[in-house]
């Protein structure tokens, strides 16, 4: 699931639950390969979420977030049809972007 992002945004009882799954190895830099060499740190550092183009949420992550990061957050004034965009940047400057339309449950 490398380089993939899965998202869902469901409106239920006035709250929009946004679920995000990012395909990323989240290497800490403390793990060794079969040859006993350290595997370089490679992890997502910044995650931003916007609703219809306006930023609503930010996450900063260290190496302690699990491989293939999973995240849920709640928006309280999104409507069906609104657009949620999530972008991420890792410690090597690599970026990813996912977009989802809010649907009513």
């Amino acid at each position: 699931m490398a380089d993939t992002m899965k998202m869902r945004a469901q409106l239920k009882g006035g709250v929009t639950e946004v679920k995000v799954l990012i395909g990323h190895p989240m290497e800490t830099g403390r793990r060794k390969n079969n040859l006993g060499e350290f595997i370089a740190a490679n992890f997502v550092q910044l995650v931003n979420a916007s609703l219809n183009g306006k930023q609503v949420f930010e996450a900063q992550w260290g190496t302690g977030i699990s491989k293939n990061p999973y995240l849920t957050f709640h928006l309280n004034h999104a409507k069906a049809g609104d657009v949620v965009v999530v972008t991420w940047t890792d410690n090597h400057g690599k970026t990813g972007r996912g977009e989802i339309v809010v649907t009513a449950a």
Binding site: A49, V56, F57, E58, A59, Q60, F73, H74
Partner: peptide
Amino acid sequence: AHFVFGEGA
């Protein structure tokens, strides 16, 4: 991790 909640979150 550190999470910041803007208006609407």
